[in-house]
């Protein structure tokens, strides 16, 4: 079926060029030798060297990774529980409020979430810092995890659990031996989503953080406000490289598994 017209091809190509060109330019110019960011002065990796000598940026990166790791992990547990509560318990007191609270942070402007969390921390007298940023990130990322896991649970064949119980496994055992392993891929992608969201977040971290817990986006932001610098280009390129590598590896692994699976299924059909 040749319904892919020239207009379709052109619009897809232009759309993807628009999506990728700014990032590509940023990566190219991170290898620019000139200190004037927009004037090409030859290829160089000097800014990467500068970057690793910049203790402030390195510290911020370390804080960001730790916050991301801890918050993603806790958010994955809480988000999975929330998804289970939403799909498995159709009737409990305050369910409407609960599902509202799970879905609202997805569309809530970050400035509001950040402000409200900050005011909470002040009201209860919690010193702002690493701990409060982590709490804030758990709260807004757990909702994304809940949505990802809930989508998987909706398509989950409940007869798998019934079969396990029918074969003698009590509910808790059924959950750990059957339900959890089957929804694990969704939980892992939920974790990855939470981790990236935490790494990326500027606004909520700015509100929730305090002295001594500056995250990488906050650091980058404070320098970016003063203008484009080659060092920041280099930092951004590294971040893009890490994320792109992660996503590519994940999708290649997935793709290979999918291909293997299809091959197996075809082989089984031939045998059957």
């Amino acid at each position: 079926m040749s319904t892919w017209t020239r207009f379709n091809i052109v619009s897809v190509v232009l759309g993807f060029a628009f999506l990728y060109l700014p990032i590509v330019l940023l990566i190219i110019y991170s290898f620019n030798d000139s200190k004037l960011v927009t004037v090409w002065g030859g290829f160089s990796t000097r800014w990467y060297g500068e970057l690793f000598r910049n203790q402030g940026l390195m510290d911020a990166a370390w804080v960001t990774l730790r916050v991301g790791f801890i918050s993603a992990t806790v958010a994955t547990v809480l988000g999975t529980l929330a998804a289970l509560a939403l799909t498995r318990y159709t009737r409990f007191r305050g369910r409407v409020l609960f599902s509202g609270m799970v879905f609202a942070p997805l569309v809530m402007p970050e400035v509001i979430t950040g402000l409200s969390l900050l005011l909470l921390f002040v009201a209860v007298g919690l010193d702002r810092g690493f701990f409060t940023v982590t709490l804030a990130h758990i709260t807004f990322t757990m909702c994304f995890v809940a949505v990802v896991v809930q989508a998987r649970l909706m398509s989950f064949d409940r007869s798998l659990e019934e079969a396990a119980m029918d074969l003698g496994a009590p509910p808790v055992k059924t959950f750990f031996q059957v339900t959890l392993p089957v929804i694990l891929p969704a939980i892992i992608s939920g974790w990855m989503l939470a981790f990236t969201l935490s790494l990326d977040d500027l606004v909520i971290a700015s509100f929730a953080s305090g002295p001594g817990a500056t995250t990488l986006p906050m650091k980058i932001y404070s320098q970016v406000r003063l203008g484009v610098t080659p060092e920041i280009n280099a930092a951004c390129t590294l971040m893009i490289a890490v994320v792109a590598a992660g996503v590519l590896i994940a999708s290649v692994v997935n793709k290979r598994r999918e291909v293997q699976r299809q091959r197996d299924e075809q082989a089984a059909l031939r045998l059957g």
């Binding site: 798998l160 079969a163 396990a164 029918d166 074969l167 089957v182």
Partner: peptide, 20 residues
């Protein structure tokens, strides 16, 4: 008596084989 304590077993329409 919950299903996991009943001495009868079921074969499901979807087969419900554990995929993992």
């Amino acid at each position: 008596i919950p299903p996991y304590k009943r001495p009868l077993n079921m074969m499901f329409q979807s087969y419900a084989l554990f995929p993992h």
